[in-house]
Amino acid sequence: MAAKVVVYSTPTCPYCKRAKDYLTRKGIAYQEFNVAEDREKAREMIEKSGQMGVPVIVVDNDLVVGFDQAKLDKLLLK
């Protein structure tokens, strides 16, 4: 079964865009939350990741802070 992928991002963040482009290139569907506008989701992101930087990418129950391609690849392979 394909992993459920969620991306918390802001519209201006280049790392977020690169992360989303990367997922798209790999053909991985993801749900995106714009934490600049959605305060509720911003709180949720901070709670889950224990920090305030974007992007935060959640793959099923695992979490990647920042566009860490190596870690993301590992989680997507699971």
Partner: peptide, 18 residues
């Protein structure tokens, strides 16, 4: 660092709206 301290305002700035 990452808990309010950021070195990339264009990335993380919008998280601090309001």
């Amino acid at each position: 660092a990452g808990k309010g301290v950021s070195y990339c305002a264009i990335c993380d700035g919008p998280v601090f709206a309001g």
